[in-house]
């Protein structure tokens, strides 16, 4: 079995579906009635984008590219925590 051609087909299928899902998340972020909906959409969007970055990094054959996924999944967590702290307690300390 030729790994490279099979993986190319898998990547083609997955990239189309992931792009469509990104578009749907973006539409929810535009429509969202409250701020919490937008932040929920950002949460999903960033985790899925990190997964897509790892899959795409195998195709590009570069480990420098794939290391951006760790940073993305860690920083996106910060927005949730700061929003929660602002809404519940009114004050934020950095």
């Amino acid at each position: 079995m030729n790994f490279e051609s099979v993986f190319l087909n898998v990547l083609y299928f997955a990239a189309v579906i992931y792009t469509f899902a990104f578009v749907l998340y973006g539409i929810r972020a535009i429509k969202g009635p409250t701020t919490a909906d937008i932040i929920l959409a950002v949460d999903c969007l960033s985790f899925d984008m990190a997964a897509f970055m790892v899959v795409l990094g195998i195709y590009f054959k570069s480990i420098m590219l794939a290391s951006g996924a760790i940073i993305l999944s860690l920083w996106a967590f910060m927005l949730d925590i700061y929003y929660t702290k602002y809404v519940l307690y009114g004050e934020v300390e950095v």
């Binding site: 919490a36 932040i39 929920l40 949460d43 925590i81 929003y83 929660t84 809404v87 519940l88």
Partner: peptide
């Protein structure tokens, strides 16, 4: 953790 904290905030 993030989803739980967001729902608790809402």
């Amino acid at each position: 953790t993030g989803s739980h904290s967001l729902v608790s905030a809402v």
